[in-house]
């Protein structure tokens, strides 16, 4: 049984059908890349899963539970984490404080009022900062970080959250080649323990991390398979009009 199942999902923004009958299923521990030309509905698909966007029709099932149109925080509590395209962290808080917010259990107002800091979580937090190379920045405000570091901080926040299903929207946007490579390594480590869905334009990055690639076009699933199959697929070539190969997109 798949961990995440989307069946005949439809989303429309005042008449425009951003997603028109999307079917997608992702298994536990998989690293799934979601690619496609601009406007294919990749980001919208992630938005639907995490509750940001309402679906007009269809079903989204996560671990046999219908989550379509649930409130965002309820979906998040089930173990779905989301990284946004524009890196969003808490600018005025330090990196350490950011990570403490990310360690999100318990969720309630009053348990967080009386709860004490535990030494165990402090250690975990520092280990996370080391993992994404921010150990030296722990006590600096997040607004001091470079763009790439901000991206990593948000990824670390999701790891702190310990989400089972992590939705990443263009995690390497604005990163240098070396940074992108390091991110790919990190993702390969996470695969298995976590289930990842990554929307990405950088085909080099996709090649480094992807097992199965799903190609979306005009709100539908166009093709699915290993990267070599996808690159040979004539329909995919046609979708990326003018750019003979998907790699040039």
């Amino acid at each position: 049984m798949a961990m995440l199942e989307m069946r005949d999902v439809e989303v429309s923004f005042s008449g425009f059908r951003a997603i028109a009958g999307l079917n997608l299923s992702v298994n536990q521990g998989e690293l799934r890349c979601l690619v496609g030309p601009n406007g294919a509905g990749k980001t919208t698909a992630l938005d639907v899963i995490c509750g940001k966007t309402r679906l007009a029709r269809g079903h989204v099932r996560y671990r046999d539970r219908e989550i379509g149109n649930s409130e965002e925080f309820r979906i998040a509590r089930l173990g779905v984490g989301r990284k946004f395209q524009v890196p969003s962290v808490f600018k005025e808080l330090t990196v350490r404080e950011n990570l403490r917010v990310g360690l999100c259990k318990p969720h309630g107002v009053f348990s967080n009022l009386v709860g004490r800091k535990s030494g165990e979580s402090a250690e975990r937090l520092e280990a996370l900062a080391c993992l994404v190379g921010l150990a030296d920045e722990l006590d600096h405000p997040a607004s001091w970080l470079s763009h790439g570091q901000t991206q990593w901080l948000e990824i670390a926040l999701l790891l702190a959250q310990n989400a089972d299903l992590i939705l990443m929207d263009e995690p390497t946007a604005g990163m240098t080649g070396a940074e992108t490579h390091k991110t790919a390594e990190l993702f390969n480590q996470l695969k298995g323990k976590h289930t990842l869905m990554v929307v990405e334009h950088d085909m080099g990055f996709v090649r480094e991390i992807g097992d199965v690639i799903s190609v979306m076009h005009q709100g539908r699933m166009l093709a699915e398979g290993a990267i070599s199959e996808i690159e040979r697929n004539p329909e995919v070539k046609r979708a990326y009009l003018g750019s003979g190969r998907i790699s040039d997109a």
Binding site: E72, F73, A76, G81, V101, G102, H107, L157
Partner: peptide, 8 residues
């Protein structure tokens, strides 16, 4: 961002 960590 806070909302997607599961906080109400």
């Amino acid at each position: 961002r806070v909302r997607y960590f599961g906080y109400d």
